[in-house]
Design a protein around this nucleic acid. Structure first.
Lengths: 114, 114
DNA sequence: CTATTGTATAACGTGATGGTTCTAGAGTGC
DNA sequence: GCACTCTAGAACCATCACGTTATACAATAG
């Protein structure tokens, strides 16, 4: 995934309205009008949020009669998580070092994090 | 994780310079001057990027002699991936439906995606 | 105390973002 | 064709984001 694509995906995710749209779409496709009903904002504003999501590859759209349905496209989300996953190794190592440090202080070992 | 926190984290990740800073910090702490050397931009610009990362909880900082070291804080990254993971269920279900559809067309079942 | 180095802050310009209202276009029903 | 509904686009405005340069602050060295 290119840097520009990550810009678009993370940029799209940086807005609460757009995250809420994604949350709604995870439960099924929706029309622009239906989405507009969920937020305290005008229909053109929602249309523009959808455009941002579409440009980021997070959403695809299809004509369905007189309305356009938005559909969640999980591929871009997966790529974003893949990027983040590269840091998983780091933070797991980080926690491992912390555990080692705690074990060094208290040889009974770290408590079960329940 | 609150919506505001997600705004800050995804907003911070939406910039390529900041992602590059995180990538650098994953390999160890670094001073502002050292980070400035990595990018074609002024030191104040880098300082502000670090401030954004700190506000998002992605980076912590400590005084080390005359310089301030930036340290990757993986916790916020984990929370971002946790948020994204909520969609994993969706897209896996989505792929499962696709598999079912393909199986319906060709009862020999979907090929091993290797 | 003074000089030096590292970092932060201030002031500014410019382009992007997110909202609005008004209007145009596209698709369906009569 | 005509009316109606749904959606998109244009024009505008306020605010924010990201960069700059110049300057102030903080910590160490001499």
């Amino acid at each position: 995934m290119t840097d520009d694509e990550l810009d678009l995906v993370f940029g799209a995710l940086a807005d609460p309205t757009r995250r809420a749209i994604l949350a709604r779409l995870a439960q099924g496709d929706a029309s622009v009008n239906e989405l507009t009903g969920l937020f305290a904002m005008s229909q053109p504003a929602v249309s523009r949020h959808l455009k941002v999501l579409e440009r980021a590859g997070l959403v695809s759209r299809s004509q369905q009669g007189t309305m356009r349905l938005s559909h969640l496209e999980a591929g871009a989300l997966r790529e974003a998580t893949d990027w983040l996953a590269d840091y998983r190794a780091y933070w797991e190592a980080s926690y491992a070092r912390l555990d080692a440090l705690l074990a060094d202080i208290d040889p009974s070992g770290p408590p079960d994090p329940s």
